[in-house]
Design a binder for these strands. Sequence first.
DNA 1: TGAAGTTTAA
Length: 555
Amino acid sequence: MRLCLRALGAPLRGFVLHSGKRVASCFSTAGFDLPDWFKNPEDGGSCAGLGGDGDDDFVLPAKSGTLEERRETATGSGTKPLSILARCPASHQEAEFEADLDEVSRILSSRFASPEAIVIAMDCCHVRVSGRLVDKILHRFNSDWVAAFGFFMWAGTQDGYRHCANSYDSMVDIVGKFKQFDLMCGLISQMHEVGGLVSLVTMTKVMRRLCGANRWSDAIDAFHKMDQFGVAKDTKAMNVLLDTLCKERSVKRAMGAFQQLMGTIPPDESSFNTLVHGWCNARMMKEARKTMKQMEEHGFSPSVVTYTSLIEAYCMEKDFQTVDNILGEMRRRGCPPNIITYTIVMHALGKAGRTQEALDTFEKVKQDACTPDASFYNSLIYILGRAGRFLDANFVVAEMHRTGISPNVTTFNTLISAACDHSQAENALKLLVQMEEKSCKPDIKTYTPLLKLCCKRQWVRTLLFLICHMFRKDITPDFSTYTLLVSWLCRNGKLVQSCLFLEEMVSKGFAPKQETFDLVLDKLENRNMHSAMRKIQLLRVQVAGNRRKSNETRW
DNA sequence: TGAAGTTTAA
């Protein structure tokens, strides 16, 4: 089956998306360059050239698919999810669900100034609200808190429906991600009043989001207030707090909290391992060793997890001599390295350019009768791919199949990224098709290297195709992907598109870096695009305002 | 997403 972009004319031009609407329609109207391999098939292989009688032809390769599937894909309506292989709803009920999902997405895609405006707009919408629909919409709009929260409020008022704890948790996470801490607070109170829906899962999200916004002491406060919402302040909860503080660059605060709490909450092995890992990540090895000692004083001997954290830190320092010493110590103390330890060591050697030593690790794994898992294989594929050894990488994929370990999304992402790095665009796109065939769901990391390659080569049509493909799969760009698109397009002279992505980025609640604004404004000035400049300057002021507002909010 | 490991990267 081959999928021709022109056959998708309707979805391209109408481009019904919950996101990127204006960006996409802009791409589809101007006259852009075709991918090089389309113009010069010998450059990029045979995947793209079909007919070639018009600018819109761009073909993705695919191997299978019935005639029916072809027809359905080619004529697929703009509201159906774009899929290289067509999908049909399994039942009538399923079709209704899909239609409801599309209807809500369509409404939420328009830009609304506030969640309240969405509640009003939703009132004419006759869909059957269910927990599944709410979860799906929250997932789809998890990068657009206004849309997600507006819909959530509306759904909560519908007859015969009540939000479950799980939906509340997702909503808490989304508003937290965009630093809407007042709303987050309100949701927690509501969850409690409605019937004790607050759990450790909820409070974990609260603490992680607060720490993510550098509000470490607010996170500690949230921990102390947990029992007011009926969540026990036990060892498990304390470990979440410690881990959160450590992961969010505040191991010192974690240690402080631990020293305060350990009198009332008994620590376990995880508590110590979390802290050791925190110190190791901060490269404070003396402290890490001290915590290990403290661990032993409490009757816990260092485990493979503890040692592996140490090893990882020395790997980051490229101190492979110390790594070897620790491996020896582990064996002596009857705590042999496991597949995770080996993955770390192998990966670090590979990254340090010591490819052969890295590959020798595979032998050691076999000698130790350690069983490789998907992550280990993925790391091996990464090292081989980086070295351009694609045949060997494919051999590893075959080995995975042979040992009953299915290649996962990371396997594909690694292969795609390596192919892009070596300018093998055709292979990279083939892998994307293979993922679809194997029902392996792509994520944002699948697309980033492909998008980057398109930006670099100025393949704007292919870029559009990929963005379209991405949105249809409910994958929205993250902060870095937006930054990438804005800056690459800007550097490559596609200023209009760059500005549109910048606007969309802000409307999604992201705060672009000053450098990103500077870059765009600089290019606009060079081109004397004054009205666009004013618009972007206004946007910058808006972002600064949002930032101030979110810093003022108190938990 | 979370007590340790794998994919983007200026």
